[in-house]
Design a protein around this nucleic acid. Sequence first.
DNA 1: GATGAATGAGGCTTCATTCAT
DNA 2: CATGAATGAAGCCTCATTCAT
Lengths: 216, 216, 216, 216
Amino acid sequence: MSTQEKVHKPRWERRKDARPQELLSAALDLFVERGYAAARLEDVAARAGVSKGTLYLYFNNKEELFKAVIRENLTPVLDEAQDLIDSYAGHSADLFREFILGWWAKIGDTKLSGITKLMMSEAGNFPEVAGFYHEEIISRSNGMVVRILERGVERGEFRPLDLKHANMVIVSPMLTLMLWKHSFGLCHIEPIASPDYLRCFIDLLTHGLLCAPARN
Amino acid sequence: MSTQEKVHKPRWERRKDARPQELLSAALDLFVERGYAAARLEDVAARAGVSKGTLYLYFNNKEELFKAVIRENLTPVLDEAQDLIDSYAGHSADLFREFILGWWAKIGDTKLSGITKLMMSEAGNFPEVAGFYHEEIISRSNGMVVRILERGVERGEFRPLDLKHANMVIVSPMLTLMLWKHSFGLCHIEPIASPDYLRCFIDLLTHGLLCAPARN
Amino acid sequence: MSTQEKVHKPRWERRKDARPQELLSAALDLFVERGYAAARLEDVAARAGVSKGTLYLYFNNKEELFKAVIRENLTPVLDEAQDLIDSYAGHSADLFREFILGWWAKIGDTKLSGITKLMMSEAGNFPEVAGFYHEEIISRSNGMVVRILERGVERGEFRPLDLKHANMVIVSPMLTLMLWKHSFGLCHIEPIASPDYLRCFIDLLTHGLLCAPARN
Amino acid sequence: MSTQEKVHKPRWERRKDARPQELLSAALDLFVERGYAAARLEDVAARAGVSKGTLYLYFNNKEELFKAVIRENLTPVLDEAQDLIDSYAGHSADLFREFILGWWAKIGDTKLSGITKLMMSEAGNFPEVAGFYHEEIISRSNGMVVRILERGVERGEFRPLDLKHANMVIVSPMLTLMLWKHSFGLCHIEPIASPDYLRCFIDLLTHGLLCAPARN
DNA sequence: GATGAATGAGGCTTCATTCAT
DNA sequence: CATGAATGAAGCCTCATTCAT
């Protein structure tokens, strides 16, 4: 008559292969929303549709789960971006635009962007994971941006640049947009319209603020 | 009679009013380093040099302390910047440079930058505080940037811009630098040299990537 | 079709009836080594070479398994000893020596000695099992020792004795040796050489500490 | 009106110095009764009259508590026994009797005897603690017994003996009595009358089983 | 029969909070 | 005012037990 009655629904369905991804996905959500410490494993399990104990069949403990969340998601996406850069034939400004838009489509606009916020928030508590993340994600993506810039300079399309710092400057508006989405963006505060924002960003970075001819 | 007896030796002379400030400062440090949930009040008290119980003489609970940390560290700094903008006479690109460098000196390079990181990390858990922060800080500082850009456009020094989005783009490299300092910057990972970074940032934003004459 | 498909290769051929014995044996090992509470059924199953679920085909729960471990390993051995005593013809001191050495060979030196340790450790948590064990084992073996002593006294070979207590005194060195084997003996600590120990024990108990003629 | 009403009974009384001993005493009780794994810290705390959390003010975790229980209790008692042996003047058989009776009074007849049972049960799970116990307790007490036997042999009061094994044989009836008290003795099973048992033990060990003149 | 994924009660441990001194 | 011993709710984690396959 009520929720009590038995529908003979098996307590679980055998999905050993799918489970880890479901758990990682749920864990990413909750870690991003609440932070590592405030995320309860019981909630992670519930969001994945399993019980507390099941989580431990796939991850030894909370920290391992956290590490897996960080490790398992971003690496494959970076590989695709690398291909784009290696094979591109046109103007470097166009390559740059494609790179940014592709990044946004593959990461910024998906829940993967949450990993950035998560890692930024928790780097102080997990130095080794931060080291891994820096090595595998940040350094690699920085390398790609640097490659684009070098390419532009070599081909006479970009001005000479302080490459070492320019890449971080250039990546910043993307980072900010991702972080905003998972912080103030949650609070019904002035949402940022991604397409307009990106267009503005690309335009600004390409041409600069000044009216041509450039002031010295 | 024995080693037990109290010699009543005060460890420090201290004005009563200084207490809350030391507590707020210690709390800021720990909230920034570890996040709200992972920061232990015992550690906050210890860092402030008082006992756990003393904390409760000044703050009702952890959440109140958190709110006070945010609230008490914000207001004063933005006024000076407003004065700069209102009274500046030179080229808008120079104003922009001064604004950025001043902001870095007054906020980015101080522990106030930690509040940015803290608020970014915890906005999801404290929406009202995030609203307050957005109102008092983000909106106001965005307004200043917009004012600088408007001024530049009005005076024919800057290109026409999508002001609504440009300010966030422009502020991003600063944000990134502040956040980096309190995340990966803690982990002995490739520190970012602020002056070089800022110079690169200002140059890039002023002139853009492209060689003049600007590609269409 | 893929690597998934079952080749139905039985790992071992095994008679159905052998299962419980292997499970009981594995359970005995682990209960003795770790105690009832700390012994994990998963480890028991693993040591017996079956899965966790299989255990429940043969035993309703952990407690039943424990009881079976005790029950199934006890009964047969004492009968032989009884025969020895009933039919022995020589000096009671020799009978005593034979009894002790036989007991060590049949019980002390086998894994049955582990049951003694187990029962000693868990008597407080399983009073009924302890009662059963006392009834079936302790009382019976005490009876045999008493019978040997009575025989010695009757035949004028032993001094008059407080039979009620002497049997426990006399059995103690055997108990100690068994318990040692399963406690400190596991820790690579000074192992006790059983034959020498037993010889010493028999000699000491037979002749006493004192130089003859006995001091008053 | 009911149990709800406030009697203004302070939730706790400041007894920082007494607490550790009270907790160790309660922990000894429960570890002995139930074994390490089955003893709940909440029960330990309750028996000591404090709450769960209080335990952690004095011991870092369950294992530390266990180690403290083993370490803190027996060592002082052994010192007294050593004094007896060093200063005794009479016949070695009398010294032996005094040693045994003193041991029983100081250890066997007190809850300290539980430590023996506890250590025997848990040696397999705590090899380092077992090592400590063997070093500090067993070796030392064995040394004392050996000293008594040597003294007896030197003075022509005891027969020549296999000292290496005799001490363990001799100590066994005491051990057994202690263990019995904390195992079967709990189950309303045939209690052992300690004084009679000890008298029988001393007599038997002193004179041996045989009628004088000693059979070969 | 046999399996092992799934469950969830229960125990260890942490830490925000209280309050007698 | 300040202290710090004490509390207990809450979260992590284990493992005996179940049950669809």
